[in-house]
Computed example of a mutant assay.
Amino acid sequence: MDDQELLLRRMHAQFGRPEAAAVAVARSSGGVQAQDAAAARLALRARGVADPAEPGRAQAAGEVVSTWLMRGTLHLVPAADARWMLGLFAARNLAGGARRRRELGLTDEICARALELLPTLPQGPHSRAALVALLGERGVGIDPKGQAPAHLMAYAAAHGLLCRGADVAPREPGYLPMPAGGPPPADPAAALAGRYLAAFGPAGPADFGAWAGLPVTAARSAFEAASAEQPSPGLFAVAGAAGPSSGPPLVRLLGAYDGYLLGYRSRAVMLDEAFAQRINAGGGVIRPAVVADGRVLGTWRRERDGLVVEAFGPLPRGVRAALAEEAAAVAAFLGVPDVLTLA
C-alpha cells in the first residue's frame, strides 16, 4: 500500500460516511475532541452532521456528553458509552493530574469531601462556578478564580460523578451527573480499538496508542482482541473494510484540534514537514486545516464576510472545485456569507 492509497483509505474512513446524527458520529469516531466547543461542532459537521442545531440538540437531549478520556482530554461521546470508556482512562488521568491538584491546593481531604457532597447537591446542570459556590456553602472552600475549579471537575468526572452536558450560558458548559449508560462491552479496550480502526484505519498499534494515550503494548493487545486484519505490513484495519471508490477529491475544512490531525503517531505522511509549523507552531495548538484526499494542503479561517483559505501551494483544479462546495457547506453551517477567498 503506497502513501496515496493509505491516505485515501484514511480520509474516506474518517469523512466519507453519509449524513448522520451527532450521537452516531460521536460513536463511529471513537469520540470527538471537545476541549474547544466550536471546534467540536466543526468536527461533527466534517463527519456528517449537516444541521448546525444538531450538536446542541443532542447535548440538551442527553444523547451525548463530554468527559476527560483519551490523553486526559475532553471528548464528546455517546452518553451510553461514557462510563465504560471512562473505565479505560480514569486511573491514568487521576495519576496524571495529581501533582497539579496539589499545586492548586486541592488536597486529598478537600477532594474527598467534594466527592461526598457532589451527589447530594441539587440536580443540574450547573455551571462550574455554581458548583464551586454550592460546595463552598457546605464548607469546601475552593478559589473560584484560578484553575482549581476546573481540576476539581476533572477529578470528580474521573470518579464517575459528573460530566459536561449542554451549555447553561454562552461559552459556559453545564455539569450534570454522569449517566448510568448501557452495559459495557465484554472487552472495552478491544471495543475502543475497533472504533478507532473504523474511523482512522489503516493504522498501527503505535498510532492507536498515541491517539488514546495508552502504552504501545496495551494498544497492540487491544488490536489483537479487536480481530483486525492487516491490509499492509504493520497496518491494521477493520475486517472487511472496503477501500474508497473512485471519484472527485474528498475535501474537508477541519476545525482546530481536529481528531484527524491527532489520530496518528506522526503526521509526516499527511503533512509536508515544510508546512508543519503552520498547522502546529507549538504549545499544543492545532490550527484549522484544509485536507484533500488525506493530505493537509493549507489552513483556513472564518471572517465576517466569509471564509479565507491559505493554501500551501497551487491547488489542482479538481481540489478547487471540491473546496468551493465544501466552503459553501461550512459557511451555511457557521451562518456566514458563502464567500471563499484564496489568500
Rank of each mutant, 00 (worst) to 15 (best):
L7D: 13
M11N: 15
A22H: 12
A26S: 11
R27W: 13
S28A: 15
G30M: 00
Q33E: 06
D36R: 05
R41V: 07
R57T: 14
A58M: 10
V64N: 04
V64F: 05
W68H: 07
L69T: 04
T73C: 08
V77T: 05
V77Q: 00
A80M: 03
A82M: 00
M85V: 08
L88M: 09
A95Q: 14
A95I: 08
R101C: 12
R101P: 03
L104C: 05
I110D: 01
R113L: 12
A114V: 01
P122D: 07
Q123T: 10
L131K: 04
V132D: 08
L135P: 11
G141F: 10
Y155R: 12
A158G: 09
L162W: 08
P173D: 00
P173E: 02
P179K: 00
D187G: 01
D187I: 02
P188N: 07
A190D: 02
A190Q: 08
Y196A: 07
Y196C: 06
P202F: 06
W211H: 06
L214I: 03
A218H: 00
A218I: 03
A219P: 01
S221L: 09
A222S: 10
A222P: 03
A225T: 06
P231Q: 11
S232A: 15
G234R: 08
S245F: 00
S245I: 02
P248N: 10
L250P: 05
R252H: 14
A256V: 13
V269Y: 04
A274M: 09
A276V: 09
N280I: 02
N280R: 08
V285T: 10
G294L: 04
G298S: 08
T299G: 14
W300T: 11
R301V: 12
E303L: 09
G306V: 13
L307S: 08
F312V: 09
P316G: 08
R320Y: 01
A328W: 07
A343G: 15
